[in-house]
Measured scan of single mutants.
Amino acid sequence: TFELKGKVGKVVKIAEDHYLVEVEGDKWIAYSDEKLSLGDRVMVVDVDGLKLKVKRIP
């Protein structure tokens, strides 16, 4: 999972307290300090167990 840091993915689902992002064909639970929208491109900035911390990228 640490090899996911720096990888780019996209938001595929928005849940009440987390996001579902697809990175390299796999779906992961993710969270972010900013509000994300469906389809946003994101970069993995940290890995916390099986959850990814992501940030939006242009």
Rank of each mutant, 00 (worst) to 15 (best):
T1P: 15
T1R: 10
T1Q: 15
E3P: 15
E3W: 05
E3N: 02
E3K: 01
L4D: 15
L4H: 02
L4W: 02
L4S: 02
K5W: 15
G6M: 01
K7Q: 05
K7S: 06
V8L: 05
G9C: 03
G9T: 04
G9I: 01
G9N: 00
K10R: 12
V11L: 07
V12Y: 10
V12E: 13
V12W: 07
K13A: 04
K13G: 06
K13H: 04
K13T: 07
K13S: 09
K13I: 12
K13R: 08
I14W: 08
I14L: 14
I14C: 04
I14G: 06
I14M: 12
A15H: 06
A15C: 07
A15R: 06
E16S: 13
E16R: 11
E16G: 11
E16F: 12
D17I: 11
D17E: 06
H18L: 08
Y19E: 05
Y19Q: 07
Y19P: 05
Y19H: 10
V21L: 05
V21K: 00
V21W: 02
V23F: 02
V23Q: 01
V23P: 00
V23S: 01
V23K: 00
E24W: 01
G25I: 07
D26C: 06
D26E: 07
D26N: 10
K27Q: 14
W28D: 01
I29E: 14
I29C: 06
A30I: 01
Y31K: 14
Y31W: 09
Y31L: 11
Y31N: 11
S32M: 10
S32D: 14
S32F: 04
D33A: 06
E34N: 05
K35D: 12
K35W: 08
L36Q: 08
L36V: 11
L36D: 01
S37A: 09
S37D: 08
L38Q: 08
L38N: 11
L38D: 14
L38F: 08
L38A: 10
D40N: 05
D40F: 07
R41V: 06
R41Q: 14
M43K: 04
M43R: 03
M43S: 05
V44P: 01
V44M: 02
D46W: 03
D46P: 01
D46M: 03
D48V: 12
G49K: 08
G49N: 12
G49I: 09
G49F: 10
G49A: 10
L50H: 09
K51P: 02
L52V: 10
K53W: 09
K53A: 04
V54T: 04
V54E: 00
R56V: 12
R56Q: 08
P58C: 06
P58Q: 06
P58D: 09
P58E: 06
P58W: 04
